[in-house]
Design a protein around this nucleic acid. Structure first.
Length: 103
DNA sequence: TTCCTGACTTTAC
DNA sequence: AGTAAAGCCAGGA
């Protein structure tokens, strides 16, 4: 595991409850805007929220969630986010207007 | 060991 | 505005 992965974890760890961040945003914040893809890979290898890495708060740039590779099944991620107070739109995407995390 | 695929984003036509 | 291609790096077969 490289430092990149570690940096991703530390940043994701700082995402407050009830907020979501995008892969690209995280990638950009750690200084590697081209590695946006690998951010997702980092999440896959991440210890999960048990390890302090709330991967469920990481969403696509359009606000959509992971296709089905998620934590306990499709919709689980959305349920968790909703439980944290994150608002969803009618199309099933996160309301990026007011719930997108800002450093 | 090599080839392929992948929780993405951005830029270009 | 919508579609297409490129870039990045690692893990699995």
């Amino acid at each position: 595991m490289g430092d990149f992965n570690k940096r991703v974890y530390e940043l994701v760890r700082q995402v407050p409850s009830g907020r979501v961040a995008t892969y690209g945003q995280v990638a950009r914040m750690i200084g590697e805007p081209r590695k946006a893809r690998y951010v997702g890979f980092a999440m896959h290898a991440s210890p999960g929220m048990a390890g302090g890495v709330p991967c469920h708060r990481i969403v696509f740039k359009d606000g959509s969630l992971a296709p089905g590779f998620a934590f306990g099944g499709p919709g689980a991620q959305r349920a968790m986010l909703e439980a944290e107070g994150v608002g969803f739109r009618e199309d099933g995407r996160v309301d990026m207007d007011g719930f997108l995390w800002e450093a």
